[in-house]
């Protein structure tokens, strides 16, 4: 007889490993993720491996608020994990999801997040094959934290790394930046500001796959610019490859509302987080082919070439060139970007 879960709130007992815990897992959580690997509910998911290389990643999600326009912690957990695999050149396959639930969380909210995870997994073509559940005391977590691990199989024919990058390579951006960070900032409701924008949270695998098919040998390096934004990703690349990166300010795709919010708050969009974009370094000779492949893939219409890898003058840096000929260094952020008063 199937176990049913009827409680309205999560309590400490649900994390105890006893009957209440079993009801939570078998009666509430597992049914959202029906698949052969999960249904055994054993200590580990067992799956066959293919010849070749596999990629493995881990991530944690502590977003506040749990829900925001365009996504929620559940969909974010799946997309974030999938994207880490995708930008490693790997087709995402399986996800483990650990839930850390604050006692007192309404079951309805948990159900919404489980459904969001299930939907994001299904859309991204991955299976959630297991996980762990813990309940912590009320006041010890912001409702729900999700920690994940992901496994994928590498389809990129050559190693993607900073060492493969050389002078003259082009920087391709998959679409408009800043949407996620600004959306979450505004969704917190701490700033009396609203805008018609939503998070860009999505799987980037279809776009990466298009790139891998169009120019498998020309792809050098990829990264999803999440926390710290484009600036953090490209500063890390510059430090790792030893060359500087120059972005053309004019060519950076930024939506009007995001740009407006950044201007009002005194934020630099290059530091703002994204959850559905990636940066790719591509050999210059294949850059237009790569761009065309992205543009003809659903969700890739705003992809563009935004800059290039250049020789280093003093130390490897990220630079932005303005349309009137000046340039500025964009460093990594020290902490969070804080709004300015005047």
């Amino acid at each position: 007889m199937p176990i049913s879960f009827k409680d309205e709130r999560i309590e400490l007992a649900h994390g105890s490993g006893g009957l209440a815990g079993r009801r939570l897992i078998e009666g509430l959580i597992a049914p959202y993720f029906q698949n052969d690997l999960l249904s055994k509910l054993s200590d580990a998911a067992v799956f066959p491996v293919q010849a070749g290389r596999m990629a493995m990643t881990a991530d944690s999600f502590v977003v506040k608020p749990l829900r925001f326009p365009g996504g929620s912690i559940g969909s974010l957990a799946v997309h974030g994990t999938v994207n880490d695999l995708a930008v490693s050149g790997a087709r995402p396959l399986y996800i483990l999801a650990n839930l850390i639930i604050e006692a007192g969380l309404s079951v309805a909210i948990l159900q919404e997040e489980l459904a969001a995870m299930a939907q994001a997994a299904s859309e991204s073509g991955v299976l959630i094959v297991g996980g762990d559940t813990k309940v912590v005391e009320h006041g010890k977590a912001d409702g729900l934290y999700i920690s994940t691990a992901g496994v994928g199989v590498v389809e990129a024919p050559r190693a993607l790394s900073a060492e493969a990058v050389s002078i003259g390579d082009k920087v391709i951006l998959s679409g408009a930046i800043g949407d996620h960070g600004i959306t979450v900032l505004l969704a917190r409701g701490e700033l009396d500001l609203s805008a018609d924008i939503k998070s860009d949270s999505r799987s980037v695998w279809p776009l990466v796959k298009a790139l891998l098919e169009a120019c498998p040998q020309a792809l050098r390096w990829m990264r999803d610019p999440t926390r710290g934004g484009v600036s953090a990703s490209l500063n890390e690349l510059a430090a790792d490859c030893g060359y500087s990166i120059v972005l053309e300010e004019e060519s950076l795709p930024v939506d009007r509302a995001v740009r407006g919010a950044c201007e009002v708050l005194g934020l630099d969009v290059l530091h703002v987080a994204n959850e559905g974009q990636f940066l790719a370094i591509v050999d210059a000779a294949s850059a237009e082919i790569a761009l065309a492949a992205l543009k003809s893939t659903p969700g890739g219409s705003r992809a563009c070439i935004v800059g290039e890898v250049v020789e280093t003058k003093k130390s490897p840096r990220l630079l932005v060139r303005t349309p009137y000929g000046a340039s500025r260094v964009v460093d990594m952020l020290v902490g969070d970007q804080l709004p300015r008063i005047c």
């Binding site: 005194g266 003093k314 630079l319 340039s327 260094v329 460093d331 020290v334 902490g335 300015r340």
Partner: peptide, 27 residues
């Protein structure tokens, strides 16, 4: 900026932080 001794290094309006963050390097 990550460990400022003086306030000029703190605010993005401070001359030192501005100089540090946007230090000139002609392309």
């Amino acid at each position: 900026p990550e460990k400022p001794l003086g306030a000029l290094m703190v605010s993005s309006e401070g001359a030192c932080a501005a100089h540090f963050n946007y230090a000139h390097e002609r392309i």
